[in-house]
Amino acid sequence: MHIHFLDPFRPRLSPVHALDPRVKLVLALAYILTVALTPVGAWPVYFLLLAVILSVGILSALGLGFIQRRALLALPFMLAAVPIIFTNGETALFSFPLGTWTLTGYAEGLARFASVALKSWLSVQAAVVLASSTSFPDLLQAMRAIRIPRLLVAMFGLMWRYLFVLVDEALRLMRARAARSGQGAEAVHRSGGSMAWQARVAGGMAGNLFLRAFERSDRIYMAMVARGYDGEIRSLPLSAIGSGSWLTLAGGLILLILLLLFGFLLWG
């Protein structure tokens, strides 16, 4: 699992950062949906979609390098889709021997694989721009605006608040483990004992972490009750969406619909 426990939010002065988070969330989701709906092999549409997300990336002042580095996350998963190159289609493109077998790559399979890879890459860029240009509290407001249940939004908020606190605790535990696991100069075996033993140590630390979480939640509960918490989740009303934001939303959605129509018309 990749743990980028640092807050991905990068504050910048950019029109993308300044956009109403609700509009940004909806547009990001609409973009990903458009990417998903774009037919296999509609290369011009993929190209235009790429141009759109790159433009937004440039506008966001986050740096294309930063966005691409974070977008690499989805890359390993592509391995799962590689086999479809060899199992799908009729038009043989290439083949090479593999032991007693011969692997044949098909044009249709390749097109499908490339489409999946592109879809995945484009979508993750949109997600990166969203997360890096919107502070999490703003994202929470956006989630409330698109009618995600209050309790769930409250959970997201609490988890995010204590993520950093508990990750710090976990890091301290791991540092303490590392400080006590010496390794001989001529270590033949993997240091630190058997896998079961290591798992047990990790499990003990996890248990420790959970116990602290329980105790902390008791204290948080008291701090909430002391300020009048009664079990109901309350929140301040959301501000109105400005007309400029509505325009951006409408413009963005129209652009995406046009791209989609373009794809359907030519490659449907």
């Binding site: 999490f136 509290p137 929470l140 908020g157 609490l158 995010w160 608040r161 204590y162 606190v165 902390r216 204290r219 948080i220 008291m222 701090a223 909430m224 002391a226 300020r227 009048g228 918490y229 009664d230 309350r234 929140s235 301040l236 009303p237």
Partner: peptide
């Protein structure tokens, strides 16, 4: 409470300071 990490349980400072008044039922 002693530990401010327990006292401050909201995502932002504003949300945390607003928590008490909100539960007192005050208007926005």
């Amino acid at each position: 409470f002693q530990n401010p990490d327990d006292q401050l349980f909201s995502p932002t400072v504003y949300d945390d300071v607003a928590f008490g008044p909100l539960y007192q039922g005050l208007p926005a």
